Simulated assay, not measured.
Amino acid sequence: MAQELLKKESILVTGGEMFVGYHIVSYLLTQNPNLTISVLDHPSTVPRFPTVAYYDVDFSSPLAVTTALRSIRPTVIFHAACTYSLALPAPTFHKVNFQETENVLAAAQDIGTVKAFIYHSSTSVTEHGTSSLISATEDLPVLFAPDQEFPYPLCKALAEKLVLDANGQHGILTCSIRPAAAFGEADTETAEKLIQNARAGRANTQIGDGRNVYDFLYVGNLAHAHVLAANALLKGGRGPGGRVDGEAFQITNDEPWLFWDFSRAIAKGVGHEVNKEHIRSIPIWIAWCMAFIAEWWVWVVSRGQGQSALTRFGIRYATKNRTIDISKAKRVLGYRPIWSMNQGLERTLKWYQKE
């Protein structure tokens, strides 16, 4: 339990004022409200916790990050700071998701107090985006250039390799948590965009035949997995069923849904229920062409600096089967989802209705 192993630790959560980091902090405090927690991030609209110390730090500055860590002297780091948007230029992905991870890891190695470093990765590091995944395990090879052509999974793969290669150095044990498509409160990507789509009257539109199966993940379960990993690293790198340090673990809700059923469940939750007879299907090839034109137009108008919100990468993700095997996390970490998909959706929608 977090209150047993983490109560004497100085815990740092990078990105603690954004989606995943915020939920890691929240989950830790529900386990033990007396934990010593610090957050490195930029101020946002999510509520702050009164017992947490917040530091506004430029992650792109190695000196700023190291100075902050020397002040905090963390023993456990949950590195969740990243960008979640898929609609960004490739250099931004590389800067935020790789170079800034490099800065945080280097600072952790420099200060000499850190014992455990948990990296927030992505299941997309093994995906090339052109074919479906069925019960995919961690045995699939992580893809790098030129095999990986998309900037988001590429930079996450590079950052994950950096962290896992550092395992055992400078007294730090490391591991990586690879979530499936996460959703939940304060989610500015999946949930918020689907809510906006529903309110704009587009929830009845789907791409393809709507039969593609998908693994999602409620963010509270993701936070739970992070804490299980931290506990194991503090025990010397061993979980209930084997070695944790130097390893990557896929995490889902272990409850696959049809992708477009999930979209329509969110629409229903905000008062825009879609009847089956009103569903309008767009052929995948037409959507792909629309995305190609949108990408090209934004590239021209922005002189290569912008990225279209509609992308071929996004079309592929929304139309493929994507199921993830989490047997390793179950066996080694002892992971089991705490909240079901329906419970996660209920909590998410309640939060958005309130906020």
Results as ranks from 00 to 15, higher is better:
Gly208Asp: 09
Val142Ser: 07
Ala248Cys: 14
Gly184Pro: 02
Pro33Leu: 10
Ala203Pro: 01
Leu133Phe: 11
Ala81Asp: 01
Ala230Arg: 10
Ser176Gly: 12
Lys8Gly: 14
Gly242Trp: 11
Val142Asn: 05
Tyr55Gly: 02
Ser327Ala: 15
Ser26Lys: 15
Met1Ala: 15
Asn167Trp: 03
Gly344Ile: 00
His120Val: 03
Gly236Phe: 08
Phe249Ser: 05
Ala225Ile: 07
Met18Cys: 12
Arg312Phe: 00
Trp296Asp: 03
Arg347Gly: 01
Ala291Lys: 00
Val332Leu: 13
Val13Gly: 13
Ser61Leu: 02
Phe262Ile: 02
Gly334His: 06
Arg316Asn: 15
Val114Thr: 15
Leu69Asp: 05
Val298Asn: 04
Gln31Phe: 09
Lys320Asp: 14
Ile282Met: 09
Pro283Met: 04
Gly112Arg: 03
Ser135Phe: 05
Ile118Phe: 10
Asn32Lys: 09
Gly201Met: 08
Gly237Tyr: 10
Arg303Asp: 01
Ile134Asp: 11
Asp58Val: 05
Gly15Gln: 12
Gly239Ile: 06
His79Lys: 03
Glu247Gln: 15
Arg178Trp: 00
Phe117His: 08
Leu194His: 11
Arg199Asn: 12
Lys8Asn: 15
Leu158Trp: 03
Ile195Pro: 05
Arg202Tyr: 06
Arg331Asn: 14
Gln196Tyr: 02
Pro151Glu: 04
Val244Glu: 06
Ala182Thr: 10
Trp296Lys: 13
Gly16Trp: 03
Val39Tyr: 13
Gly306Val: 12
Asp261Pro: 02
Asn275Phe: 01
Ser60Thr: 15
Ile324Tyr: 06
Val39His: 15
Val39Asn: 15
Asn32Gln: 13
Ser132Val: 01
Gly304Cys: 09
Thr188Ala: 04
Val227Asp: 08
His224Gly: 01
Val52Cys: 12
Gln353Cys: 02
Asp41Phe: 06
Ala180Gln: 07
Leu349Ile: 15
Thr45Cys: 03
Glu355Ile: 10
Ser60Asn: 07
Val39Met: 11
Asp325Leu: 05
Gly15Thr: 06
Thr123Phe: 06
Phe93Tyr: 14
Gly171Tyr: 09
Leu86Ala: 10
Met290Ala: 11
Phe216Val: 11
Ala225Met: 10
Gly184Ala: 04
Trp257Met: 12
Arg264Thr: 06
Phe78Asp: 04
Gly237Leu: 09
Gly271Ile: 04
Gly334Glu: 13
Trp285Glu: 12
Leu233Ser: 08
Ile286Asp: 01
Pro91Leu: 10
Arg73Leu: 07
Gln343Ser: 09
Val57Asn: 11
Ala81Pro: 00
Pro153Phe: 07
Asn321Leu: 03
Val57Arg: 09
Ala294Thr: 07
Arg73Trp: 00
Ala294Ile: 02
Arg264Ser: 00
Ser85Tyr: 04
Lys328Ser: 11
Ile172Cys: 04
Arg73Cys: 04
Asn32Leu: 11
Leu228Asn: 13
Arg202Val: 01
Gln206Asp: 11
Thr126Val: 15
Ala200Asn: 12
Glu160Thr: 02
Ala203Ile: 03
Phe19Met: 08
Gly334Leu: 14
Val300Pro: 01
Asp110Glu: 15
Gln307Leu: 06
Thr51Gly: 02
Gly210Leu: 09
Glu255His: 10
Trp297Phe: 05
Pro337Trp: 13
Ser10Thr: 15
Asn34Val: 03
Ala309His: 01
Thr137Lys: 04
Ser327Asn: 14
Val298Asp: 02
Ser131Gln: 13
Tyr54Phe: 07
Gly314Arg: 10
Ile279Gln: 00
His79Pro: 01
